[in-house]
Amino acid sequence: MSDQIIEELIRYAKQSIDDKKIVEKLHSNEVSRIIIHEGEIEDNKAVEGVKIKAKRKSDGFVEVKIIIEKGKKIKEPVYMCFGVLSPDYEQKIDMEITAEDKSEVKMYAFCTFPKSIKVKHIMKTKYKIGKNAKFSYDEFHYHGNIGAKVKSHTEAEVGENSQLTTNFALIYGTVGSLDYKIKTKLKNESKFAAITRVKSRMNDEVFVEESAKLEGKNAASVLKSRLVATDNSKANFVGEIIGEGNNSRGHVDCKEIIMNNAVAETTPKLKVVNKTSRLTHEAAIGSVDKKELQTLEARGLTKEEAIDLIVKGMME
């Protein structure tokens, strides 16, 4: 039964990403991985340098703790899959990931709710990143044709001279409602780069908030979002950077494309409390660039085909 579920989850996880090959390793013995279907831990394995513990708690949450051990550079990415194959289930995950000093790791998380009618996915995450570490977290969602209700809130502490990179993508299928927040605190010389890409359609509601508090000297952050809102959907992005540390640097870059009756909102919030800090932002909301559209039409693409290609490029 478990293998069938895993196979099905992998099949649907492939719908969330262009490069299907990445997903194939999800159930491979070469990689550390955890697969959770609804409230059950279907698979859990860790390679040397990685510790993964998972248990179901009495409050309905599944608790996941992952540690990347000190000084370990994990060759293969760590894989995670949080899935619900039923049409109606409330999945609750409480995850803590610790990347110890001088560790390096890349993680792939696939959140797949392909048959959702009323699926809820609640995710509380904490990243604890030590000193001189590199941590990258790519999260891909697929919510089927009707959409799910997703609330994913993350808090992260990035230690001295460490790097955190996050990549959130929900491009295919229907969103439903998404409440995605990531809040980070950065120590001396640390870096945080985030990119969020979401395409909403029908009556989807999307709220994305990325926040970086540059506490340490020379801390730096780039918060980037690319949202495409079509039909009657709503998309709202907030990118917040607080410059506290000496010579801290931050940039918020948000682009939203709207089509049909969609509504988009974007708010870059910059706060400087140290005069040596420098924060910038660029934000653009509008329809598809006319010149890009006309160029592709002049190559024989219809308007719809041209828009698809432009949006695909923007989402890559």
């Binding site: 160029t295 432009i310 695909k312 490029g313 923007m314 890559e316």
Partner: peptide
């Protein structure tokens, strides 16, 4: 046109 994100081959 600049075609943000689009690769030359695409």
């Amino acid at each position: 046109a600049e075609f943000e994100g689009m690769k030359v081959k695409d």
